[in-house]
Write a protein that binds this DNA or RNA. Sequence first.
DNA 1: GCACTATACATTCTATAGAATATATTGAAG
DNA 2: CTTCAATATATTCTATAGAATGTATAGTGC
Lengths: 232, 232
Amino acid sequence: MSLSLVRSQIPVTRRDVVVDSLRDAIVTGALEPGTFLRETALAVQLGVSATPVREAMAVLQAEGLVEIEAHRHKRVTPIDLAATRDLLEVQAHLWRLGYVRGMPHMTPAQLRELRAEVERYARVISLGEECRPEGKLEAIRASHAFHTTIIAAAANSELLRVTLDRLALVARFILLHGTSTISPAGLRLHQAILAAITIGDQEQALAHFDSLAARMIALADHGVAATPITGD
Amino acid sequence: MSLSLVRSQIPVTRRDVVVDSLRDAIVTGALEPGTFLRETALAVQLGVSATPVREAMAVLQAEGLVEIEAHRHKRVTPIDLAATRDLLEVQAHLWRLGYVRGMPHMTPAQLRELRAEVERYARVISLGEECRPEGKLEAIRASHAFHTTIIAAAANSELLRVTLDRLALVARFILLHGTSTISPAGLRLHQAILAAITIGDQEQALAHFDSLAARMIALADHGVAATPITGD
DNA sequence: GCACTATACATTCTATAGAATATATTGAAG
DNA sequence: CTTCAATATATTCTATAGAATGTATAGTGC
């Protein structure tokens, strides 16, 4: 199961390969939150030496997926509900800014892209796959690509970058704890946003986005307690 | 001339030391925008081996201070006016969110901290040091600490993190190109914000902040052309 | 039995050397 | 003279071994 939400352009170095593998494993939960990471073990497992593994750690630490304590250990960032709420609030705020700036400048090609992503989301729901991990993942991919397409229209390089930087962390939480976000109701909100944008009603599109964001943030409030950590 | 705006808690590993040194050098312009970075040369210069230098590069790349082309070269991120405008807009937007969330919850100790930072800024101006690099740097430190204190009151870990992450990049631009931001007018705006917060008038504080942000962003519009790159 | 020290072990962190890759230079053919 | 190929050079990237650091265990004094 490969995620490919965020990806280092073309992975040319071994460091890039390691970053991508580990990011996928962390986001999908194959490496559970809190898992301790020993660099030699990972190196053997991935068929590389310790050096690129260590460099990959520095990258993942910057993305917030890994926590490092110098000279002691590294581990997959545990899921803390308070921190996650903060994360989702900031991400929603940035996405909203992207909507405001991007919606007025969307090209026909970008509108088609939006429709395609909604279709993709709809396919998951119509097949009843939203409870299986693969289905959830596919829907999350579609949803994130949907938002990202709108933000890209804002033509603000930094805004695009800062939202992409946090995407993996957001995706992990939704995938592991967000049972209710990927749902027929979620699909309807995406469809409503698309419809509003298509007829040029940006106010209404924003209103629907706000509903979506509120639903997402609510997950971190009355959220289930974090999964038991099997530190290994 | 040490910056110490952003810093890796306590630099315990050589990697941390290298990150801090290079960040300072880049922000102050000692390493000019566009300068190519050869890892062995830097390693010799800093008295370490190439390994921690490479790991430091990965960190600085994530901060946007260094650009890496795999198997080719690394260089100090050049100053691009369009990208900088995007950066400043996003940063201002995040700071503003921090103001809205933070101002209602400021403690007396934090208010004292704000006063201290304004004093620090005022000292630079009253001595007429705002044109010398050291003075500019000191005023930027004070200004950023001022904003950060307000954001800290918002108690949103992610908001604090995302604003701190971009601080070095913002500081570099202001220091190298922002002749007009650090000025008596800039000081007055900080004083006005402080006064408004002190009497609890958050609306007016925001209005003054917006003026400050607009002045900052304007630098990247009719900005001077980037300094000639002496690629070395 | 309890606190403290010293030793053994595990893991991270760093240095160095060699492999891989990209660029510049030289030479030859057309 | 230009174009292309082959070689030389410089730099990055990776692997491996050893140094540094932190943790756990065993042992000793009280």
